[in-house]
Each structure stands twice: as structure tokens, then as C-alpha cells.
Design a protein around this nucleic acid. Sequence first.
DNA 1: TTGTAAGCGTTATCAT
DNA 2: ATGATAACGCTTACAA
Lengths: 331, 331
Amino acid sequence: MTDVAREVGVTAKTVSRVLNDEGPVAVETRERVLAAVTKLGYRPNLMARNMRVGARDATVGLVVPELGNPFYGTVAGGVEGAVRPRGLTLIVGSSGETAGHEQSLIATFLARRVSALIVVPAAAGDHRHLRSERVAGLPIVFLDRPAVGLTADCVVSANRDGARAGVSHLIAHGHRRIGFVGDLPAALYTRRERLQGYRDALDLAGLPFERALVETGHDPEAAGRATMRLLALADPPTALFAGNNLASMGVVVALSRAGRKDVALVGFDDLPLAEALDPPLTVVAQDPAAVGAAAAELALSRLDGDRSRARRTLVPTRLITRGSGELPPRT
Amino acid sequence: MTDVAREVGVTAKTVSRVLNDEGPVAVETRERVLAAVTKLGYRPNLMARNMRVGARDATVGLVVPELGNPFYGTVAGGVEGAVRPRGLTLIVGSSGETAGHEQSLIATFLARRVSALIVVPAAAGDHRHLRSERVAGLPIVFLDRPAVGLTADCVVSANRDGARAGVSHLIAHGHRRIGFVGDLPAALYTRRERLQGYRDALDLAGLPFERALVETGHDPEAAGRATMRLLALADPPTALFAGNNLASMGVVVALSRAGRKDVALVGFDDLPLAEALDPPLTVVAQDPAAVGAAAAELALSRLDGDRSRARRTLVPTRLITRGSGELPPRT
DNA sequence: TTGTAAGCGTTATCAT
DNA sequence: ATGATAACGCTTACAA
């Protein structure tokens, strides 16, 4: 900046004024400064600017369990799309579902003086350590799962409603015995909410809840085994509800291997090839981009001074019927 | 930092020494500083540190077409995993395959003084504007596709070899007429390389190349239509090769809708549910995490002073046989 | 073992 | 309409 100033024969402050459209600058000076800027290939240094101006970096820190998971990748895209128009840049890290990694990422982001923090909590995390930042006014939004040990903003899918809708759909197609292949047991929140939605649907239909029909599969393989256990019951379910995308994949693969095309299935979370499956997969789709965008908007409103109490935003899900959820019960 | 210093009764410099394990510090001073740090909840300001120390921010900027695409999400995860051990943080942006967005993201990253830049070029981009940064010594690595108008480092999948292997696999299973459903025409590089691999395989087997068997589908729907056109030919192919993941999805859906389980298929890029399809999908799998990690390693070696000339790194692909590619030709 | 002074690249404040 | 000076939070170089 000094170089540009010298080139033009003015002071750094004048260059600064031109670059920020601030205060009165003579038209001619302005032009000469701009010319010198391109001539010298000068680029303003955002680090220095942010440090001087707000003491905050113009970034939003995002912590996700795993960037390669399309759900979180899309969430990240949603966050980025929402913050970029505000001139904020996204910085991300993967926690690998490990509380320790999550904490060290958060510490790095805080040291960088991010303007806001958006966190998908790792399974066994604890967020009491963020209390001081919260009272200091840093916008912190939890995404997909609520914080542990901290009252804070949170944006989640309508897990319970969505699961209820999915299971009710199966019931509407005549099913009376419906198996539940669930989430990571550690990711307590989503499993609990979705299982609750499952029970809501049974209750609404006056159907009994049977513990034997509830299984856990924390990855595709485990979900596949869970599926086979359910089908081997003396009085097996005629339909299955899969509690997340990994579980859905496991159930689909297991059914396909077993050659069972007569078992109805609704999955929570959409899958890329759902339509190409046989039968095509009916799902309760989340809207990850909308979840990310909503979290970012909430963070931005906090940044704009909204000091109202912490709120939980529910992002609606959508039932997409494709075939597997409309199969009639095997007679 | 001054507050901490005052609390202990020393100078900022001493606090700095403690925090950076630099120079000799009395054990007792050290302990009192550390105590004051936790007592006051002090966090070092990385912005200020980076600015003073290297004039470079301890970040790596990554530009991808679309974060929600699992391929690029996984690439981003690979980059992050490789740079984090070096104390570098990942900042990302999506170009949406738009040259303009790509340029403005890059400009932002440069203004932030990233330590290295990794770019998946948007389809119609041009990278001459980066020449000055390159000569200034900024590590710039292009990923998945080479730069346009700039000699620079580049990490790509072994597109040509992979496609040749996939098509040769079909030939080995008796196919003589193999359709190619290709990539975005705009993403010239990958389409060209993979089509070249397709031709290599035909040449090796002494089979003729027929223009009529080469179709383009830039998204699943277009790929589906392309598939139907190929199958409607007077002398239709008995096998198809899909040039990327979106094309694969389109072909799979089209074949499934048409009830054609007799057409052999090999796709470039693996898909989450490939195994659950009927028949399970044989693919030439890329390794997106390895591509990301390789690009990061290359950037880091440049950062460490490697001034050798620009190189192109090929990351091997792997043929995963699952069924669809082993179907015999329809008689 | 610790301190002092200066400076990284900006902008805020107050003058001129 | 422009400039001078100080300051943001830290580290480097040199002293003490």
C-alpha cells in the first residue's frame, strides 16, 4: 500500500480511502491510485485489514464429522452460499466424529478469530468449554445435533416428524409389523428423535410397539446384519424403516443379496441412486443445503446483533415415494 | 497478551516466549504465565501472528466446483487431512463450475494471503491471471483437470489408463460393440482422456472405432437419453462405458427403466450404492481422497522450497468388478 | 533470564 | 481533499 501511495505521490491513507470508497477523494487522485494499483499488481492484505478493523476475521468456521459424506458436503455448500454474499469466507475442518479433534479444530478457529462458529457435534462431545465465547457474544450455531452441556442455537432436521411421516406411510399401505434399523447408538439425538417418530406413528395407528422390532446398525454392514436378524424372527416384519443413509444402504444391500423384493422399505435420508434401485427407494429426504443455509442465516442474524434467547430451528423433511415404500405386506 | 503480561508482572515478549517455547524462560515465570493465560482465558491471535511472522496466512485455499458432490467433498477431506498435521487450516469455496466465481474466490484467497492454492478449474476457465503469483513463488496446484494458459503443477486421476482398463474388461468378456456415454463436453480434459482410453482399448483389441457409438450426456437425464439413443441403433452396442459418475447414474436409471438387464456396463467413478444395483455395478474407481492428499503434498513440497519444474501427478484408478461389467454379450 | 524498540499492513482520529 | 500519527496483537533483533 505504501508502494502504491509513493507511486502516486500520496499517503497510504488516501489509497485506503480509494479502495474502500470512503470519505471524499478527488476524482483524478482516485484514478491515479487505481492505475497504480493495477500497474504494481497490488492486492490489499485482508489479514491486516481484518485485524485492524474488527479484531475479527471475516470468516465462518465450520466443523463437520466428515467432509466426504455427501450430507455434510452439501451442508457446507449451503453454509458457504449463505455467508459469501456477506463477504465472509468459509473455513472447515473434519472432526472424524472424535470429540478431541472437534475441540482442537474449534480452538484453532477461535484463535483465528472467526466471526461465527457452526458445529456439527461429534458423537461423544461436550461443549461447556464454549460457554465463555458464547457470553462474549460469538455467534455459535449447532447443526444436525444439539450442543451438549450448553444452551445454544441449533438447526436440525424435523427428525421426529419425518420419521413419523415415513412410518405412517408404511402403515397406510397396510403394514402392521414394521422393523426399525437405527442410527449410531452414540449419536443419541437423531436416533432418539427418529425412533420417537416411529413410535408416534405406531401410536397414531393404535399399533403396539415391540422392542424386538428395533435393531441397531451403525454402518452398512451392521445394518445388513440387523436386517437379516429382523427377517429371521418367528413373526418377521413386512416392512422396514431405516434410520439414516448408511443404515438404508445396508438394508438395501442385504435385501438385494437375500433376493427379498417383497419387503417394503422407507429410508431416512435420500440417496443418489435411490431411483435406480429395484424397487426404487422411497425416502424421507432431508434438505442438507437448507440446513446449512439456515444455520448460517441464524449465525448472521446473531452477528447483526440479535440477542434473543437461543432457539432451535427445525428444517422440514419431505417424503419422496418411489416404490419401495408402497409395496403391500406379504400375505 | 499485554493483559497476561501485566497480570504476571512481565513483558509481552516473555509471554510470547512461553507460548512459543522459545528462548530461555525461568520455570517459575513459565508457570505463572501459563496460570495467567488460563485465568484470563487468553487465546493467542493467529491473525496477528501470521501477519507478523510470515506475511502469509497459515491456510490453504481450495476451490472446487461443488462441495455437495461427494467426489469433491472427499477431495477436500483428503486435502485437509494432509495439511492439518502441518498446522495449516483449510479454506474452501465452490465455483459452481463458473469461471467468474472461480476467479473471485481465488482473488479472495490471494487477498487473504493463503500459503498455497489448490484449484479444480471450472469448465471454461483461464488461469493466465495467476502467472504473477506463480513466479512470486506461491504454490499453486491444479486438481482433477489441468490449468488453462498456465504451466503449473497438476494432480489428476489416471483417466486414460483407467478408461482403457474398463473398456478392455468389457472386451475381455466378449463385447465387440461398446457404447461410450461421455462427460460434459465442456470439461474437455477428462472427457478427452477417457475417450482416448476407450479408443486405446479398441485399438489394442483390433476393434474399429465407430463415431455413432460415442454419445454425450452432461447430466443424468441427458445420459439417460443418450443411452436410449444408443440402444435404438440398428446395430446397437451390447455394452456401455459411462464416462463419469453422473453419466453412470443416468445410464443405470435408463437401463433399469427400460428393463434392460442384458446390457453390460462399466462406469468411471464409484457410486455409493453400486453394490446394491441389479446387476451390481462394475466401476473404474477413482480415489478422491488420494487425489486431494497428493495435491496437498505437492503444494507442501513447494512450500518447503522445491523449485523443480511443474509436474503432473497421475493417481491410479482401480477396476472393481461387481457384475454389470461381466455380463456376456446378448446373442 | 528478561526487556526495549521497531515493524508487519492496515485503518481511526484528528488535523490541515 | 489529504495527511500525520497512533494503534490493532504479535514477533524479530538487539540490549541489558
